[in-house]
Amino acid sequence: MTELNITDLELISENKMFGGLQRVYSHPSRVCNGPMRFAIYLPPAALNGNKVPVVTYLSGLTCTEDNVTVKAGAQRIASELGLIFVAPDTSPRNQNIPGEDDSYDFGSAAGFYLDATEEPWAGSYNMYSYITRELQDVLSANFSAADMNRQGITGHSMGGHGALTIHLKNPDLFKTCSAFAPICAPMSCPWGEKAFSGYLGSDKALWENYDATELVKKSPSSATLLVDQGSADTFLVEQLKPELLKKACETSGQKLTLRMQEGYDHSYFFMATFIEDHLRHHLNGLS
């Protein structure tokens, strides 16, 4: 296997926003077996040579790096607070795996932020390693303003699941954590059962490594988790199950701020409403 050149970035787009730069890059990925894309917002403070904290945002099912970049309004507050805001894609693409593009909740755009152990997915569907190792190397090598010792992680739905599990498994890497309408207990919902069965096989002991409700029982972090959930979310009862996360946090002593937001749904209208609260939560924890 050829050595990965982590400085081999292709600039896809660049737009000035709120005094900073919104960029999208592509780069070769070993763990995902092909090109991966990520968006990055560099606030004015980063462009002026200062070291600034980094918040990584993980998107949900069907999404790319563009959804949060275009819809959430994160750049305005990231500019004000001096935060680099990173949004990677949600899965490998174009792997020529049978069934890869057959459904919205498995395969393309549905990587679930885990490392697959089942073939034919194991050779490329390794978003956990991508977020925690490879993208870390890419950011460190190419963005000198990124303070890699001050990082937080957040996400929406499937990405909220990813943010919670990645933080709980790597609390020294991602020191702060928040989530919007996360899949809190994937072992206990249809989305998670389908994904885990396909990517991880039938051994549910492996599933526990990627279930926030199970992880928090075993190894709570010292951070306060901020979770916002809309009461009018059509996926709330069947797929998201924040009550299971709340109970697990109460049992383990994990600090959790769970806010049920009356009348809000699962959309980016909900996300845009509370993104400022989340970015301020990360800045406070990383200052």
Rank of each mutant, 00 (worst) to 15 (best):
residue 1 M to H: 05
residue 3 E to V: 03
residue 5 N to F: 05
residue 9 L to D: 14
residue 11 L to G: 09
residue 11 L to R: 14
residue 13 S to D: 08
residue 14 E to Q: 15
residue 16 K to T: 14
residue 19 G to C: 05
residue 20 G to V: 08
residue 20 G to Q: 07
residue 22 Q to A: 11
residue 25 Y to G: 02
residue 27 H to C: 10
residue 27 H to N: 13
residue 30 R to C: 02
residue 31 V to I: 15
residue 31 V to F: 09
residue 35 P to A: 12
residue 36 M to I: 10
residue 37 R to A: 14
residue 38 F to H: 12
residue 40 I to P: 13
residue 40 I to C: 03
residue 49 G to P: 12
residue 51 K to Q: 14
residue 52 V to P: 08
residue 52 V to A: 09
residue 56 T to C: 07
residue 56 T to V: 15
residue 59 S to L: 05
residue 61 L to S: 05
residue 61 L to D: 00
residue 62 T to C: 03
residue 62 T to M: 08
residue 63 C to D: 15
residue 64 T to D: 12
residue 64 T to M: 00
residue 70 V to Y: 13
residue 70 V to N: 09
residue 71 K to N: 15
residue 73 G to A: 05
residue 74 A to W: 05
residue 77 I to T: 14
residue 79 S to G: 12
residue 80 E to H: 10
residue 83 L to R: 05
residue 84 I to E: 11
residue 85 F to G: 05
residue 88 P to C: 13
residue 89 D to H: 04
residue 92 P to I: 07
residue 92 P to L: 14
residue 93 R to G: 00
residue 95 Q to M: 15
residue 96 N to R: 10
residue 98 P to H: 11
residue 99 G to M: 11
residue 99 G to A: 07
residue 100 E to T: 03
residue 100 E to P: 02
residue 100 E to I: 01
residue 104 Y to Q: 05
residue 109 A to I: 01
residue 109 A to V: 00
residue 111 G to I: 03
residue 113 Y to S: 03
residue 117 T to V: 10
residue 118 E to P: 04
residue 118 E to N: 12
residue 119 E to L: 07
residue 120 P to I: 07
residue 121 W to C: 12
residue 122 A to P: 01
residue 126 N to K: 11
residue 127 M to S: 11
residue 130 Y to P: 02
residue 130 Y to D: 11
residue 138 V to K: 14
residue 140 S to D: 13
residue 143 F to D: 06
residue 143 F to I: 05
residue 144 S to G: 10
residue 148 M to E: 06
residue 150 R to I: 01
residue 152 G to V: 06
residue 154 T to W: 03
residue 155 G to L: 08
residue 155 G to I: 02
residue 157 S to Q: 06
residue 158 M to H: 04
residue 159 G to E: 01
residue 159 G to C: 10
residue 159 G to H: 07
residue 160 G to E: 05
residue 165 T to H: 04
residue 166 I to T: 15
residue 169 K to W: 00
residue 173 L to C: 09
residue 174 F to K: 08
residue 175 K to H: 07
residue 177 C to L: 04
residue 178 S to A: 15
residue 178 S to F: 08
residue 178 S to D: 11
residue 181 A to F: 01
residue 183 I to C: 13
residue 185 A to N: 11
residue 188 S to R: 08
residue 189 C to R: 02
residue 190 P to A: 07
residue 191 W to M: 14
residue 196 F to K: 11
residue 199 Y to R: 09
residue 200 L to R: 11
residue 202 S to H: 04
residue 205 A to R: 11
residue 206 L to D: 14
residue 209 N to H: 11
residue 209 N to T: 02
residue 220 P to D: 08
residue 221 S to H: 06
residue 223 A to R: 13
residue 224 T to K: 14
residue 231 S to T: 15
residue 233 D to C: 02
residue 233 D to F: 04
residue 233 D to P: 06
residue 234 T to G: 14
residue 236 L to A: 08
residue 236 L to R: 09
residue 238 E to A: 13
residue 245 L to A: 13
residue 250 E to C: 00
residue 251 T to M: 08
residue 251 T to Y: 08
residue 253 G to Y: 10
residue 253 G to C: 12
residue 254 Q to E: 05
residue 256 L to A: 10
residue 259 R to C: 09
residue 261 Q to S: 12
residue 263 G to P: 08
residue 265 D to V: 02
residue 267 S to E: 08
residue 269 F to T: 14
residue 270 F to V: 04
residue 271 M to R: 02
residue 272 A to Q: 12
residue 275 I to E: 09
residue 276 E to Y: 00
residue 280 R to P: 01
residue 285 G to F: 10
residue 286 L to P: 02
residue 287 S to E: 15
